[in-house]
Amino acid sequence: MSQPSTPILAGQPNNPKLNQIQQKLLTLKLKRINELNTNLKDLLNKDRIYASNASYLTINYVTNTKDYTIPEVWGSLNPGENPFRGNNQIRGRQNQNSKNGGGGDGDAGCCSIM
């Protein structure tokens, strides 16, 4: 391994001060690389499961959790089960207000008459 020479050191090969700075820099460099290696070793030793396994676990979770946005899998809610659709009276009044105020839009299709 040949000693690396910088332009500053080129003219003063035996300058002790510069030698010392260079030593410090090299020590720091070595420390950094060793830290990186330790992190990489931790990463290497990390427990991993196969992607196929993880995929099946994810699919398992998705297919076993109730989701009423997908009626073809989970069917639909019985009236009264959805907390956000439990207040037709208030919503009716609100729609009427918005119609009177002329600001209503998009609400037209939201009420279901049962």
């Binding site: 196929s52 995929s55 699919i59 946005t69 997908i70 073809e72 956000f84 299709g109």
Partner: peptide, 27 residues
């Protein structure tokens, strides 16, 4: 470890019908 993708693993699962998502504006 990366032997497959989620999409490949879901090949046997039936696709969802795009007309059948039950979400309507309520507010």
């Amino acid at each position: 470890i990366q032997d497959t993708t989620l999409t490949d693993c879901s090949k046997d699962i039936k696709s969802l019908s795009s007309t059948n998502i039950n979400l309507k504006t309520c507010q």
